[in-house]
């Protein structure tokens, strides 16, 4: 007993050190994703508010650029307004009212904290459960696809952007409708890769890559990026396509969250098929 006590007295810093290291390792392994660790224990509101205050202060420096982007988007939206069109045919009126059912709703939000230089980047935005955000909703910016909502707290949510090595987006080449998966290779935040394009397809630098519409989270046809280069794999005759992302993740501040009003229906249908098999 006495020996044990002297042992403890001599080595207690080592024991505490080991204990805390095991605790840290446990955090790493168990919560490899930020959201579990941070979002379940109330820390999120504190960190979120800190970043939001800081964003309020530093946000002014980018106002000019943001204004320009918003103005550009306003102009684009104005082009789509009914008042910008002249009715040339009576049928259009009928179509507008009954044929189109709204499928996607947009909620605007601001990024309060973002990382672009990790392998597993995350963005924190200032809207959460209280504002109608739910897990797996798509996130876009005026320029194109940003990512999906990974987790939500009451007033903040965490976005898993394309520039996270665990993310990928179903996409297709606009001009020939060839589908593939766009993901990130963990290097620079402006470039990713697209896989799954068969080798017989003709590609060119600068081809636009858009969302395929097969994903539940994004409407069809949003820009994801542009082809910056391509290489045919000898082994399986598929291309590895270099992608320049449409979104500049480093200067991103305003985003829209897309809620798919028909997502539940689609998911239920898919589930029904799976259950039958």
């Amino acid at each position: 007993m006495y020996r044990l006590l002297t042992f403890l007295q001599k080595y207690y810093p080592l024991l505490i050190f080991l204990l805390l290291e095991v605790f840290a390792l446990n955090l790493i392994v168990r919560n490899n994703h930020y959201h579990k660790a941070v979002f379940n224990n109330g820390v999120s509101n504190f960190t979120g508010n800190t970043f939001e205050t800081w964003q309020d202060i530093t946000g002014y420096f980018g106002l000019r650029k943001q204004n320009r982007k918003l103005a550009e988007e306003n102009a684009r939206l104005r082009n789509h307004q009914i008042s910008s069109f002249r009715a040339s045919d009576r049928k259009i009126f009928v179509w507008n009212d009954t044929v189109y059912q709204q499928q996607f709703q947009y909620i605007s939000a601001q990024i309060v904290n973002a990382t672009v230089n990790r392998k597993k980047n995350f963005f924190l935005i200032n809207k959460g459960k209280n504002q109608g955000i739910e897990k797996n909703m798509g996130v876009i910016s005026p320029d194109g696809v940003v990512g999906v909502i990974k987790s939500v707290s009451s007033n903040f949510s965490l976005v898993l952007p394309i520039i996270n090595i665990e993310a990928n987006v179903a996409a297709r080449i606009e001009k020939n409708d060839q589908g593939g998966l766009v993901s990130w290779d963990g290097r620079h935040f402006s470039a990713g890769v697209m896989k799954g394009i068969p080798g017989h397809v003709k590609l060119e630098k600068g081809d636009t890559i858009i969302t395929s519409g097969q994903s539940l989270f994004f409407p069809e046809g949003l820009p994801v990026g542009y082809v910056s280069g391509f290489k045919k794999n000898r082994s399986d005759n598929f291309y590895t396509v270099g992608v320049r992302f449409a979104v500049d993740f480093n200067s991103l501040t305003h985003v829209y969250i897309i809620s798919n009003l028909l997502a539940e229906e689609q998911i239920n249908l898919l589930k029904a098929i799976e259950d039958e098999q």
């Binding site: 790493i28 392994v29 919560n31 490899n32 800190t50 970043f51 904290n113």
Partner: peptide
């Protein structure tokens, strides 16, 4: 707490 991944 402020930088994305817990523990590292």
């Amino acid at each position: 707490m402020f930088s994305g991944m817990m523990g590292i």
